[in-house]
Write a protein that binds this DNA or RNA. Sequence first.
DNA 1: AGGTAGGCGATTGTTCAACAATCCAACAAG
DNA 2: CTTGTTGGATTGTTGAACAATCGCCTACCT
Lengths: 238, 238
Amino acid sequence: MDATGTPQEPGTPADGRPAAERAGTAERVADTLRARISEGAFPPGSRLSEEAVGGDLGVSRNTLREAFRLLVRERLLVHELNRGVFVRVPTDADVEDIHRTRRLVESAALRGLGRPPYPLEGLVDAVVDGERAALNDDWPAVSTANIRFHLALVALAGSARTDELMRGVLAELRLALHPVADARALHEPYLAGNREILAALGAGDRDAAERLLDRYLDDSHAQVTAARARHRPPSPAD
Amino acid sequence: MDATGTPQEPGTPADGRPAAERAGTAERVADTLRARISEGAFPPGSRLSEEAVGGDLGVSRNTLREAFRLLVRERLLVHELNRGVFVRVPTDADVEDIHRTRRLVESAALRGLGRPPYPLEGLVDAVVDGERAALNDDWPAVSTANIRFHLALVALAGSARTDELMRGVLAELRLALHPVADARALHEPYLAGNREILAALGAGDRDAAERLLDRYLDDSHAQVTAARARHRPPSPAD
DNA sequence: AGGTAGGCGATTGTTCAACAATCCAACAAG
DNA sequence: CTTGTTGGATTGTTGAACAATCGCCTACCT
């Protein structure tokens, strides 16, 4: 009946969340919804009806509403009183704020590094995965690997709270990128960029890495904004 | 019956949250609980019974549970499955991570400043309020002003997401500080420190401000940790 | 014809009551 | 003293009910 509906158990929620303690139904539902949103099953702007989603996932309205609250707080959903919850539609101002935050945090993570060598395993893995995905023309996977690269970069600062901030911000960025179809032109350039940053860090040259990162963020912001403008629904004013 | 219970409407939630859109019952309950926790009505470690709190505030269990989820996500409460929600008891590791985050973000906020002059109104207000509160021996208010000072400092970076991170982190810090009774020894030294930082910024000397801030954070971490150790329940291992 | 008030269906907001699952402390048995 | 059991209390989750609100459609009035 509800073949796709029963919320399967994501041993580890696949997004990297530690899942410190046993999960209740609400958080499992939230995990499921988070995954569906980020993979585009619910495009930005779409409404999530309590009845429809609840029936689909096989949970009651009350439990579902608890899950909604969680996702609203992570800015994946917005809640309009008496109108329901919608998948967030990030604005250009959001994209700008996201990049401001990234610049602040990622730069600071590099600047705070001590003396080399640095523990770069996470970065290496992300770069390798990204390049492999590119060979397979799997551009969503390239995007995921890119996000993992920057998460690993922030992880060098060694702060759980900062990591979580970044996880949220990058999830938002993915949301902002969703309407862009041809992910290739958008993600391909950064494969080389990430490898360069990694190489600089491997050589112990923190300052060079910071300069590269700064350029990366400038490029990213410009590219993302341009791509979004290109893919904006044709101006409805005729 | 529930004289103190009825959740009054906090026009603006007093904590500085913008309250972008109309608030539902759950978020109002969350605001009330947040206030009560930060003012110590619910000390860290205490359990929040659904029945008791729900009856006190005059809301149903379901609505209350929605509010609980919100506060769990901001790390003010912890949720143990089938056991209920408890006011968070920050560990020394938490205090360390909090300071790591503060150092990362606050330093980056200063470093990202452009050319002087800087918009320092928020910082000035916080310093003035703090000094006035000190004259009145109102040390909790001094603590609040100190938090406002550092929030204003981060606000110089101009990122809403960063501001929100900091709001949460500083609320956690207040929680970690709660068991410490004599707030005076803890907060008094920072009055002068904050004024120094403000003076450096007023003079346009960003680097000096950064050095002062760094020293402040070192001091703060050491002092907070020491004070917490002093006020820890006598070690039960004999 | 056109704008407006009002009605109506659908959805959310909130509460209530019920039952299952789990925990915990007290107690009984070995 | 340890172990197992039992029973009460609390949370987890559901389903149903009703109020409040929204958006649309229609009928009415000018």
